[in-house]
Design a protein around this nucleic acid. Structure first.
Lengths: 239, 239, 239, 239
DNA sequence: TATGAATGAGCTTTCATTCAT
DNA sequence: CATGAATGAAAGCTCATTCAT
């Protein structure tokens, strides 16, 4: 989280006071006139709220606890974010902004197809491992039927260029005769994410049920290998 | 909650009134003499609670709403289940008992390996489709770090004989030269579940992000086909 | 408590069903027709209720707990005693009946004055020691402004013949020149009781404040000696 | 409740909001800057709670009624005192602080022994007369086995210097040959308090039983005279 | 920009009591 | 004589939110 707003523009979800839940019409220029402290307070609140929401869900999260975690006055949260729901939306938006940024840094088009898929799989796995709160937020938002996401103009623009990149990778592999034909990139992407996500997000219940330690370093390494095997095993062309 | 007790029918999680710090000497036979209404009331409450918890999470669930949904006096819920957390545990236990029962009905050992895997995949997919509340409960429980499940002696005994059956299927396929070697049955099972689960559980956010309808009948059919392809494509031996 | 209803008449507070809180018009004859079990159940309930009320007060007492302590169905308590308040009254009445009975057994008129006062003091002290629940009930009832006692025709008849006996003892002592003149028997009796009562009833706070163990056998013996010294020291005639 | 803190004025038990699991670094000086209303609100709540607890006991007291009596929002009580038990403890502590303060104002060391004992007796009697709620609180707390008092670091320091003063008075009286020897100051103090306390605290039941008006001015005057006679009569040396 | 004080609505839970047998 | 099931009312307490400065 430390590299969060490296630039003043790209990944910010910081708001003007009382712009509660609104779209995102406060652009770069405005940020200049705002004090450093204001930005910092908002960022600290967002981080605290991210932890709180991911640990307790929307209904279970407590504004008091967020204020305590952020070491700010509760009133300040309302000053910046309006209310609980808007705060949750801001948290969610920031989470999406961050993963999108990270994905952008991947350069899959430059790699051979198999390697590109391997990289994407590894990246997805690692991102979930390093950002369990992102998975938790997804859980929470899905429990709510994505009602916040749907309202967010900010996230909806994210029509995942990743899918286009993946399509291109699949096309290259197919042209080279090493990938099977007829693969839907979105379906594949969901499978890559799902295989990782279910294991990581549900490890608490799974390890209880199977009575097996699933989060040790060696277990995680084994899982990543399995995930890669499944995806590449599926894609390979054995004709 | 130590007085949860199994009765004659396999999938019951009906309890004695939670207030009685009694011994637990009311065994199977006694349940027969208990008024049918008691059992029925508990079952109705459990069903209402299942819906409520899966729609709103643990923190967001409202006891009032559960009572209303079950058309019983709110007090009765406390009479039978003690408190909200214990009610949630009872709901969770019943959900696990039910899926375990359904799995038991599968007869994978009698089928050819490929068909067995296909059946298991289809079953898992269909169960999630037909029981979205089960997925939601898993989500909720995982948000809580499986703290309820861990306390449940009832569920922990569920050491999923399914894994053993799957191991036997994999061994047969491998012996016949049609499955690859070295496949961990638990990893495979988690992948089968995960590929289905992520799509279904997160369809709300996914369809928002990809701007694609994921839950139409045709979309669901396509997904099931993809899922089966991934699993069988991974398993096939092309040496 | 085992010698409670040695006779069928004198000390009973057992009621006919639904005679809730009423005076006491069910006399000896009726008891004959009532089953042993009924009497026993009522007595068990009264004992359980006595403990509960003396430990938790009127507001803090729980009907559930009384039923549990008495090992009877909660409904039965209502069957016999009508409601909580009436049950408390029954408890209170029984407590008064018992101390009155015990006092009756004292034969102060036969003793020399000093010895008679000594015996009364010792008796009062011992009775409080052996019946802490009686003191607690007094506390509870006084917190309520004696509203139950006032309604009880049963207890009001108890116009304490003890005072008359004490008056006679004081008169004898004064006639013999060993007791001071002008002592009001009721005042003296309240002092005898109060000196013992305060120490015993409030020992919990007193021992905390003075950081001294007040209820050890030696401490209790010392206190009884002090109490006797105070009363006899006050009464002695030094002219 | 560890954040109870003493401020400049001796008898305050005012607290920081109970929610803040904060450090406790708000010392005396800070209280000055806090809005006067906060202190006032707390004091008003404490007074209302004192009345409520002394009239109804711990279990019978109603938070709603306390709020109504104090004319504050019920939520505010929880804001300052956390819960009912803690509020009761605060009430109890304030009651002890107040009587201790009043005792401190007595200047027994300057008086001749007989007069000192007479003053102490009169003071104790009068304090109970004027503060019946203090007696009631003692009753309530003793019913609970002094569990709150024991937890209070504040009250436990109150190791009643009064006993030391009384010891000195007794020594003087004995040296002058007017008091008997071998009197334990604590025993004597408990007797002084007990003789007054029992009469006043239990007057409701006593007046019912003895059918005598005990609280009229003349009756109270007679009792104080009796009490003084008992104590001084006991102490006098007639050798 | 920031904060301590205060609140209304509503939550989970408790309790004495009654119903139906 | 006895009981398990059920309930209305109200309790203690929580929570997101606003007031006033």
């Amino acid at each position: 989280m430390s590299d969060l707003h490296a630039t003043a523009t790209a990944n910010t979800v910081l708001t003007s006071p009382a712009s509660s839940g609104a779209s995102g019409d406060d652009a770069a220029g405005v940020a200049e006139t705002r004090s450093r402290d204001a930005d910092r307070s908002q960022q600290i609140i967002l981080e605290a709220a991210t932890r709180e929401f991911s640990e307790h869900g929307l209904g279970g999260a407590r504004m008091d606890r967020i204020a305590e975690r952020a070491q700010v006055n509760k009133r300040l949260i309302y000053y910046y974010f309006g209310n609980k729901e808007s705060l949750f939306l801001a948290v969610l938006e920031q989470a999406y902004v961050q993963i999108r940024e990270a994905e952008t840094r991947l350069q899959l088009t430059d790699l051979p197809p198999i390697e590109a898929v391997r990289q994407l799989t590894r990246f997805t796995w690692n991102y979930f491992v390093e950002h369990p709160e992102f998975m938790a937020l997804l859980n929470v938002e899905n429990l709510q039927g994505a009602q916040h996401l749907r309202r967010s103009s900010r996230v909806q623009q994210t029509n995942f260029s990743l899918i286009q990149i993946l399509e291109q990778v699949l096309a290259r592999g197919q042209a080279q005769g090493i990938f099977r034909a007829g693969v839907d990139a979105m379906q594949l992407y969901i499978s890559i994410a799902g295989i990782s996500y279910f294991y990581l997000s549900n490890h608490a219940t799974l390890s209880t049920i199977f009575d097996r330690e699933l989060m040790s370093p060696s277990a995680r390494e084994a899982r990543l290998m399995h995930v890669t095997d499944v995806i590449l095993g599926y894609l390979r062309n054995d004709s």
